[in-house]
Amino acid sequence: MIGFWESILLTVITAATPLLIAALGELIVEKSGVLNLGVEGMMAVGASTGFAVATLTDSSSIGVLAGIAAGMALSLIFALVTLGFAANQVAAGLALTILGLGLAGLIGAKFVGTSRIAIPPIHIPGLSDLPGIGKLVFGQSPFFYLSVVLAVGVAWFLRRTRAGLSLRSIGENHASAHALGLKVLRTRLLAILFGGACAGLAGAYLSLVYTPFWSPGMTAGRGWIALALVVFASWLPLRVFLGAYLFGAATILQMHAQAASMGLPSQALSAFPYIATIVALVLISMRRVGATPAPGSLGTAFVPPR
C-alpha cells in the first residue's frame, strides 16, 4: 500500500523531472555565455516529435530519441543565427520559441486526441517491493534516474573536468578565453546542442510519460520556468536540482489545493507556480551580496577578432 506522503512525493518527482532535465541543459548553455530563451519551443517540439515518432514506430524509446534529435535540430538553428551571424540572443531565443511552438503544432496535428501507454517505471524485483522507500528509490521512471545522473554529471563536468573549466571561462570572459586559445564558438555550439538535447528530452518525457499524449500548449510555460530555475539556482547544478523539486512541490501543492477547493478561485491556484517563481527570483536576489553570479559574458555575442 502506498502511503499518502509517499504518493505525494512520487507526484512531486514526476513534476520536477522535466524541469530538472531542461534546466540542466540550459545551465550548461548559460555557463558557456549563451542565453537561449527558446527552451519552451524546443521542449514543445521534443514533446510533439517524440509522441509522433513513438506512435508511428510504436516504440517509446525511438520516440524519446526523436524528441532529443528534434530539440537539437532546433537549437542548431539558434546556434547558426547567434554564433554564425552574431545575432541578438534574446531576440533569437524568442524566435526559437515562436518557431518551436508553431512547428510542434504542425508535427503533432495528426496525433491530437490519441494517447499511448506511458513508459513504465522501473521494477527491480525485491528492492522495489521494500516497504517505505522501495518504490521511491528503486521503482521510478527511468527518466528520474537519468535526471539524477545528469545533475551529478553536469556538476562534476563543470567542477572537475578540464573541458568544464574551459566552458566556464568562455562564459565568464570570451575575449580572454579566445586569447588563451580556447575555441569559443565551437564550445558554445556544443553547449547549445546539449541544451537542445535536454529540452527535447524533457519534452519527450512530458508527452511519453507525464501525460502521456500530445496536445498543443502542453508545455504550459515549463520551458520558461526551467530558465527561471537556472537563475534561481545561481547557476549551480545541485541547486537546480533543489529548485526543480521545490517547484515540483509547489505545482503538486497547487493541484491538491485545487482538488480540495479551499474556497480560492481555481485561477488563483493555477497562477501560484508563476507567482512563486517571481517571489523566488526576488528572494534569491535579495539574499545575494555583491556581484551577480551570472556568467560574465552571458547573452553577448562573440565575433572573433581577426
Partner: peptide, 19 residues
C-alpha cells in the same frame, strides 16, 4: 500553426539579415 511557424522563421531571417 503554419502561420506561427512562418513568423518564427521570419524573425530568424530578419535577425540574420540584420547581421
Amino acid at each position: 500553426d503554419l502561420t506561427r511557424t512562418f513568423q518564427g522563421i521570419l524573425l530568424f531571417c530578419v535577425l540574420a539579415a540584420d547581421a
